[in-house]
């Protein structure tokens, strides 16, 4: 039976060694409010200066937790440009029915022409809250029916 334990221990080690690869990331959570109200179902995207972006969608309370890649929560450390957008395309469900997308309600200074940024600290649990206003021009072009 001792042999059994040795084998199991070896296998556990082997499985643990197969964790998701990739660069070091740091967790980022936060809350998005627009005009003081929580912004639900908005995409929050962190675009680093060099590397894979991280993103998340806000829940009904406007809270989000960034995902880097499948099974990895967080974002690349360093300065990240932040985009916040509620735009989503129509989609086709299992039944083949078209579901309408949601329009953009966030002005372009927070997405297409964003001025938001956040510095993600390595090895820390980052909290990035954004309080934005609905004043400003909406991004153009995406509502074009030919643009799909």
């Amino acid at each position: 039976m001792y042999r059994c334990f040795v084998y199991n221990a070896c296998m556990l080690l082997a499985v643990a060694g197969c964790g998701a690869g990739g660069p070091d990331i740091a967790t980022v959570t936060g809350k998005v409010t627009m005009d003081g109200q929580p912004l639900a179902n908005a995409a929050v995207v962190f675009v680093p200066e060099n590397g894979r972006p991280a993103g998340a969608r806000t829940n009904a309370q406007g809270e989000y937790e960034l995902t880097y890649s499948e099974g990895r929560e967080g974002a690349l450390p360093g300065k990240n440009m932040v985009r916040i957008s509620t735009l989503s395309d129509p989609s086709i469900g299992d039944d083949g029915q078209l579901t309408k997308g949601s329009p953009e309600t966030v002005p372009m200074q927070y997405n297409a022409q964003t001025t938001l940024s956040f510095s993600v600290e390595a090895g820390a649990a980052n909290v990035a809250d954004f309080d934005i206003t609905s004043e400003g021009e909406l991004p153009e072009g995406e509502a074009d029916p030919d643009d799909n």
């Binding site: 972006p53 991280a54 993103g55 998340a56 995902t67 499948e70 957008s85 395309d89």
Partner: peptide, 11 residues
């Protein structure tokens, strides 16, 4: 980015 889903903020 590759394999980036809607739930993770990809519009």
């Amino acid at each position: 980015a590759m394999n980036w889903t809607n739930a993770e903020g990809n519009p």
